[in-house]
Simulated assay, not measured.
Amino acid sequence: MAFANPTLAAASCPIRRKELGLLDEGGDDSPNPFAAHFAGLFIELHSQGLIAVPAPADLDPGLHALIQESASKRGDPFVAALGIEGLGTLWLFKLAWARLYGVLMVEVFGQVEAELIGSDSVFNTLMRETFASVGLADSWDRLIGVSRDTALRAGAELAAGH
């Protein structure tokens, strides 16, 4: 459901966007909780100056216009949180989201050999490309370790009944 149509996901997986710093108290529930969480990570990385953000002038003019128009129509959380200067971060987020969504969909629909998926090679390659696209290539090994430790800890807590 994390990747479902936002209209369908809203009915079954509501989460408060304010918890991610995307809306004030009393704001609407996010239609896609995982996307909101993922967006919150990009906003936080941008706010801390940890990612290499392309300037709006560095984006293709047509792309820049589409993103700007899209953001203004929907009250995009990136624009709300970062202003128009956040368009480069919005673009990086959309690219990362497409990579993540794409790799999951080819796995779900069996478009890549099970052995290749089981090896994590496709996922890891796409995530490394995502890290490189935001200027975090040097952090991959450290952050993959944090991710594995978190997953192991969560698994242990589930097994212990917490």
Rank of each mutant, 00 (worst) to 15 (best):
3 F>I: 07
4 A>V: 09
4 A>E: 14
6 P>R: 03
8 L>Q: 12
10 A>P: 04
11 A>S: 12
15 I>L: 11
22 L>K: 03
23 L>P: 00
24 D>K: 14
25 E>A: 15
28 D>Y: 04
29 D>I: 00
31 P>D: 13
31 P>A: 11
34 F>H: 03
39 A>E: 15
42 F>K: 03
43 I>V: 15
53 V>C: 15
56 P>W: 01
56 P>C: 09
57 A>S: 14
59 L>M: 12
60 D>G: 06
62 G>W: 10
67 I>D: 08
68 Q>N: 15
70 S>H: 15
71 A>W: 03
71 A>M: 12
73 K>R: 13
76 D>V: 03
77 P>L: 05
77 P>T: 02
78 F>K: 06
78 F>N: 07
78 F>G: 10
79 V>Q: 14
83 G>M: 04
84 I>Q: 15
91 W>T: 01
96 A>W: 02
99 R>S: 13
103 V>K: 09
103 V>P: 05
104 L>C: 11
105 M>G: 05
107 E>T: 07
108 V>R: 15
108 V>N: 14
108 V>F: 13
109 F>W: 06
112 V>A: 08
113 E>M: 06
114 A>L: 10
115 E>R: 10
115 E>T: 09
115 E>Q: 12
119 S>H: 07
120 D>P: 00
120 D>I: 02
121 S>H: 10
125 T>C: 06
126 L>T: 01
127 M>E: 11
129 E>D: 15
130 T>Q: 06
136 L>V: 03
137 A>W: 03
138 D>Y: 01
141 D>Y: 00
142 R>W: 00
144 I>V: 14
144 I>D: 12
144 I>Q: 11
145 G>T: 13
147 S>E: 10
150 T>R: 12
152 L>P: 00
160 A>K: 14
160 A>Y: 04
161 G>S: 07
161 G>Q: 00
